[in-house]
Amino acid sequence: MTFKTLDDADLSGKRALVRVDFNVPMQDGAVSDDTRLRAALPTIEKLRAGGAKVILLAHFDRPKGKRVPEMSLRPVVGPLAALIGAPVAFADDCAGDAARAAVAAMKDGDVLLLENVRFEAGEEKNDPEFAKALAANGDLYVNDAFSAAHRAHASTEGLARVLPAYAGEQMRRELEALELALGKPQRPVMGIVGGAKVSTKLDLLNNLVGKLQFLAIGGGMANTFRYAQGYDIGASLCEKDMADTAREILQKAEAAGCKMILPTDAVVARELSPGAVSRVAPLAGGAIDADEKIFDVGPDTLREILAAMGEAKTLIWNGPLGVFEVQPFDKATVEAAQEAARRAASGALVAVAGGGDTVAALNAAGATGDFTFVSTAGGAFLEWMEGKELPGVAALSS
């Protein structure tokens, strides 16, 4: 994929319309987590240093084309200004008179945040006329919101067809990391996929088995695979109606030369609670009682996962191996994450991870900082891993 970055742009005196992800957690009308604001800082700072006027476009929540006061982006202004260390102006609309006046008042290096683009019905419809109205306030377009790149909206896709388009710094880092993981990876490539249900990750599994050398399955979805193979899984979470599909995925993996790593043993308990009485049980031989549930992969399975990781040059991770939020069922996820982080830090492994639960699990393991890249993009990350074209990315590369 080829796309222009800010290194390719003449920024001096230019009005840069920048799509960012400021869909931040709020509590009592105030920003409660500024992670996404911080993610935009390298792009904002690079534009300011280049002498551009920085005009920020973002959405918040789902107002569905109507003005909803509690979904205004105004509460973002103070925290963003504090992070930048400079004033941030605010316009009460994104393409109307207020936006035009605010842009006209800007000097080079100034930062302006426009009101929630989803207040306008044309945003989610990707209305070309609305995209042109947004573009009237800019000389160039910068997309720095990979997390919204799977949406073909006016501010994520339409604008790239009206103005010269560039990838922002966060977008560039995300695309480069994903290219390392799946586009042109160092082989062998290993995947770890967890989660509750096979049905929610069908596209992901079908895409990965054709591209990976190892694929470890954990979480509740592993129970469905083992049930499909005739194992007794007690009272564990299982999608029994997906058994045929699970067998098809296993056959596809075998045909493609992808080694599937499924649990041979598990940590089981009768209830899911911190410090619950648990034991390790093999999956073979009916060793799991009818009222027991699987909450983590066992030590033999973990050793097999770590052995495959030792052979791999690239790792892609989406989803925990067990119920990592509740001890002692976090053990496999934590130990696998720490080993991946150690290998990545030593340069032996390119380790890329993404998805909400995955990020939380890596944070809990203290492993996030040593991974090659950890994506917070959620749905966009998953769709990329599924092999789907992301409209916001495609528009940058066209």
Rank of each mutant, 00 (worst) to 15 (best):
K388L: 10
L321N: 14
H59R: 03
L163E: 05
P328F: 00
L362V: 12
K184F: 04
A336R: 02
A345P: 11
D108A: 15
T333A: 08
L163F: 04
G230C: 03
R74A: 15
P42C: 00
A341W: 08
E335Y: 00
L83H: 00
D97M: 10
G29K: 01
D92P: 01
L134V: 07
P263L: 13
V88R: 02
G366I: 11
A9D: 05
L237C: 10
A52D: 12
G65D: 05
Q327C: 03
F130E: 02
F373Y: 15
E304Y: 00
S199M: 10
A269K: 07
G13H: 09
E45T: 00
F130P: 13
F3W: 14
L302C: 06
G65F: 09
G355R: 07
A336I: 06
I44Q: 01
V162T: 12
K331E: 13
P185Y: 06
G85F: 01
L306F: 05
A89L: 07
D92A: 15
Q213T: 03
L306R: 13
G356E: 14
V76Y: 04
V323M: 07
P299S: 05
A99F: 04
S155F: 04
L47D: 04
L250K: 05
D232C: 07
C258L: 02
A105P: 03
A380P: 12
G85N: 03
V297L: 14
D291H: 14
V24T: 11
E124L: 09
L56H: 01
R173N: 09
F60Y: 14
A148H: 01
A121F: 07
A177N: 10
L37K: 00
T301C: 11
L57R: 06
L41I: 04
I233A: 10
A336P: 07
R151I: 13
K293F: 05
L80D: 02
A121S: 14
D296L: 01
K201Y: 13
Q170W: 01
A181G: 13
V111D: 00
G234S: 12
T301P: 12
M385I: 13
V20G: 01
P274K: 15
T35A: 13
S398D: 11
G285N: 11
L302P: 08
V323D: 06
P79A: 01
D92Y: 05
V20R: 00
E325L: 15
G195D: 08
A243G: 08
F146G: 14
L73R: 06
F90D: 03
A131N: 09
